[in-house]
Design a protein around this nucleic acid. Structure first.
Lengths: 206, 206, 206, 206
DNA sequence: AATGAATGAGTGTTCATTCAT
DNA sequence: TATGAATGAACACTCATTCAT
């Protein structure tokens, strides 16, 4: 009784997905050169050879993780938020809330942020082909910042620099999520304070 | 005619110091497993064997860098600042200014901060013996935060969490300094905003 | 389709045994520091890495060889012979015959004797944990010697010293076996002469 | 006040001789590949570089030791003994006595015997050019053995094989001298027994 | 002449990758 | 398809040799 081709395909997809997902976490925690295939396969719970059934090389696996990590859903969400007809302050608070919540609930998201940002730090490297993802996100936050500066609710300064600062802090807490056992996550307000002028005097707005 | 023992000692000290200093930067940039002795020695400009004249192993060299990185001068400075008879806000602005300036001018300092913080992320690891350094610094900033909360110039919330946030941002910009070629350093004010209530209206508040 | 665990175990056991056996000969001939892993693996006919699949280090392999070399079958045989209800002279002739024959036929046995004795020469060394093997064998020969001295067929003198002498000659011919191409093995009688009084007149003495 | 050229030459000779002498012991104990120049120089009490002032390489030093070890004084002595107008038994006892005594008193002699015999074991090796020394000594002992066989005081068998046996035991006790701390040296009679028929019945001859 | 720090070829060890089962 | 033993190129480390002092 041979398995149906469809079922076969399905099984393959499942294994492939499993490897990708688990590897993402492992790579995020240990880095590329800090990850041994022997350790990784043991962590996943499969044989070393199995990885090479689905991926050509360690390098290839790492790249594939990127394709996943760089999905454009996030960019779309970001775009939608940017063009919403609400105040910049509201956008920033909403975004901050959403990001911190997601980081706290989803370790994969933390891994994604971590990998993505680490790529930006290794520019001259072979692994950093697609940085559009990150830069798109930065761009939209910068746009919101500019809106906020007009509305006088966001601090002055280069919008891009501030966006970079904002995402940097997100990265920071992605790292904390991945590496720290006892959480010390900051609140959305703490995060938003990077961009917003003193919000304590306008308590009525949220 | 043998070399004088003093001169020998001197030569050894110089080389040892050179290796430690240069390796600190290299390790900070490439990580432990990302650093090959062959690359490192080439970067320093010495033969591979020379490293082993001064250090027992790659591991040992890494540890020794820590002994240096963990010098307690910084802690002392921090302590002095903490007990200065000035307002918490002044302390925070002064500290922020001093830290950002040092990061910008001294790549070694960026490397130091980077290595130290990365150690905190790898607690269960063999490399993280001495974390007093970091925790001491955190403690003093928390103290200043508490002072500031009494003085109503610092935002509310767990002092330790806020201190952790503050140092996290320092780490973030140490990374940027090490890995980014075109600087986007934030200002001391941008950094201080993490802790301080809206400083734009400071005239009336102090 | 994974290999069956039993078959795997079997394969591992065979390779491990092969490496141990072949290495024993190689180490005996070349010594520890005279043995390069590259040469050894080539001699065995495997890749260098394969050795490290089964043994942690060159040192570890060397130790493991000892565990095998120190098997206690020989000691048991020796014990049996010692307590056999026959004359000491017969025991000595039988033992001498058996030892010389084994040396001549079995190169592994020569390697075993060689390694074992060389260990005794390096007492203060890390490699000489278990010397019970050698000393047990010595003890039983000494016992036979004492029996022979009572029976007036064995020469006078310290039994232990004579046993040491006897085994020394065995070691000597183990070396000859391993290193000399054209044999000049002595006869069992030549060997026994070390201990026995003139055996040419034996008719009247027993 | 420059040193006189003669004095200079003298000093050189002393250092050279010191290195040769001490190295001979060290090589005998540790073998060629087991001897590190760093360890050897420390053992001698000089700097590593000093060895290279007097010898071109480790290999060269080892060869030079051989030139010394292979001095032909021993051969001459042996030749004289061989042609002495006394009985073979007397020659054997005398030789045995002299050899055992020398081994016991002179560690250098033990080293010499050890190195010489070890060379014979490594024939195909680059280090064993001159084996005349050993073979000459063997030849003379074989000659004495043949004399003894005619005189009916020496056991029957191939004279060369017996000579080889005899020198083998000398080698054995040279090893014991070098490596064993508590002596278990055999007597000259024990040694002579290898060749002589039962000497216990002719106690009056020595 | 003597030193010992520096060197780099050579050796021990690891690990990404292959392949027979 | 999944396995894990085997591989060898690459990496960590050693040690005979050199050379400035």
């Amino acid at each position: 009784m041979p398995k149906s081709p469809e079922r076969c395909q399905e099984i393959r997809q499942e294994m492939r997905s499993k490897i990708l997902h688990e590897s993402m976490l492992y790579f995020a925690k240990n880095g590329f050169s800090g990850t041994k295939i022997s350790d990784l396969s043991q962590y996943i719970g499969i044989a070393q050879g199995t990885i090479y059934v689905y991926f050509q090389s360690k390098e290839d696996l790492f790249q594939e993780i990127f394709s996943i990590v760089n999905n454009h859903q996030d960019i779309n969400d970001m775009k939608c938020l940017t063009y919403l007809p609400i105040s910049a302050k509201q956008k920033i608070l909403q975004l901050s809330h959403s990001l911190m919540q997601r980081l706290e609930q989803d370790e994969s998201y933390a891994a994604k942020i971590t990998l993505n940002t680490q790529m930006m730090f290794e520019k001259n490297d072979f692994r950093s082909r697609d940085t559009t993802y990150q830069s798109e996100l930065y761009k939209y936050v910068a746009k919101i910042i500019k809106q906020g500066q007009k509305e006088k609710t966001v601090v002055t300064g280069s919008a891009m620099k501030l966006a970079d600062y904002y995402w940097g802090v997100i990265y920071l807490y992605a790292l904390k999520k991945l590496f720290t056992t006892k959480y010390e996550m900051i609140s959305a307000n703490d995060l938003a304070r990077i961009l917003l002028k003193d919000e304590t005097k306008k308590g009525s707005e949220i």
